[in-house]
Amino acid sequence: MIEKILFTALALFAISILIALYRIIKGPTTPDRAVALDMIGVNLISVIAIVSIVLKTKAFLEAILILGILAFISTIAISKYVERGVIIERKSDN
């Protein structure tokens, strides 16, 4: 029973990643793409958690943490590029 629930959740997460991928390719504006990329990161974290439950291992937990850090930093970088046009400034004016 629990196996069926886990595999159904995996399939639903795969569908939601595909929908976010459509938004990244099609998305009219850059903020749409940034939000969709962040959504793919969160969905990948959930997929790794479910896979580690299915395989009964703790080896993937570090991968979850690393993916969280990378999704956080990349979202900050994209939104800073959208807002200021430059990612790392030489000298900030405020």
Partner: peptide, 14 residues
């Protein structure tokens, strides 16, 4: 990546 996050929030000079 932690050092890059510092560079992102602040600027290179500081």
């Amino acid at each position: 990546s932690a050092i890059v996050l510092l560079y992102l929030t602040s600027d290179i000079e500081s």
